[in-house]
C-alpha cells in the first residue's frame, strides 16, 4: 500500500513538529546575509534549510520564512509549489530518485525503478509524484535528468548519488538502508 502525495496545500499533513532552535536561526541569518541587496533572494536557501531540518515544508515553515524575509506567505508558498525539489509532506526515511530522462532510460532506468518499487512494496496510485511506503521507511519517485548520462542509470538515495544502478545494485541499495 502506498499513500499518494499531491502538490497543493489542501493535502498538507499539518504543521511541522520540532523546535526552531537558536542554531537554526543563526544558520538562516547567515544565509540571508549573502543577499545584501534583497532579502527575498534568500527564500530558496531558507526553504532548503527548513526542508533539511524538518523533512518537509508545511505551514510553519512558510510562515517562519515569510516573517524572516518580510514577505507575504504566498510569496514563499508559490515557490514550494513551483520547484520540484520542495515537498509539502514528509518523504520516507530513505527517499530514492531514479533518473528517467532519455540517456538513463536507454540505460534501463525503467527496470531499476520497477525493481525498487517491488523491493519497497509500493503500488502506483496513478498520480504523478512520489510513492511512499506505509511505514514511512521508503519513498520513490522519478526524477528528470541528474546530469550523469555517461553512467546511466543513476539514482539519488537521499543525498547520496549512485551510478550504473542496475537491478542487482538496486537490491543492494535497498538492503543497505539501515
Amino acid at each position: 500500500m502506498s499513500v499518494p502525495l499531491h502538490a497543493g496545500t489542501e493535502s498538507c499533513v499539518g504543521a511541522e513538529k520540532g523546535e526552531i532552535t537558536p542554531v537554526l536561526e543563526k544558520q538562516a541569518d547567515e544565509l540571508v546575509s549573502r543577499y545584501p541587496i534583497s532579502k527575498r533572494s534568500a527564500v530558496l536557501p531558507l526553504l532548503h534549510l527548513w526542508q533539511e531540518t524538518f523533512g518537509y515544508i508545511g505551514p510553519r515553515g512558510v510562515e517562519w520564512i515569510a516573517r524572516k524575509l518580510s514577505l507575504q506567505e504566498i510569496q514563499v508558498l508559490e515557490l514550494v509549489t513551483f520547484y520540484p525539489w520542495f515537498r509539502q509532506q514528509p518523504y520516507g526515511k530513505f527517499h530514492f530518485r531514479v533518473c528517467r530522462t532519455l540517456p538513463c532510460a536507454l540505460g534501463g532506468s525503467g527496470k531499476t525503478f520497477a525493481a525498487l518499487q517491488k523491493l519497497m512494496n509500493l503500488k502506483a496510485d496513478g498520480h504523478e509524484g512520489a510513492m511512499i511506503s506505509e511505514d514511512g521507511r521508503f519513498s520513490l519517485e522519478y526524477s528528470e535528468c541528474l546530469a550523469s548520462c555517461g553512467t546511466a542509470p543513476v539514482v539519488l538515495r537521499n543525498d547520496e548519488f549512485y551510478e550504473k544502478v542496475d537491478e542487482k545494485r538496486a537490491t543492494e541499495l535497498v538492503a543497505g538502508c539501515q
Binding site: 543577499y35 533572494s41 530558496l44 526553504l47 515557490l79 520547484y83 520540484p84 525539489w85
Partner: peptide, 10 residues
C-alpha cells in the same frame, strides 16, 4: 562569491 542552490527546475 556565494553559492546559490536551485530547487530542481530545468
Amino acid at each position: 562569491i556565494h553559492v546559490h542552490r536551485g530547487a530542481g527546475a530545468y
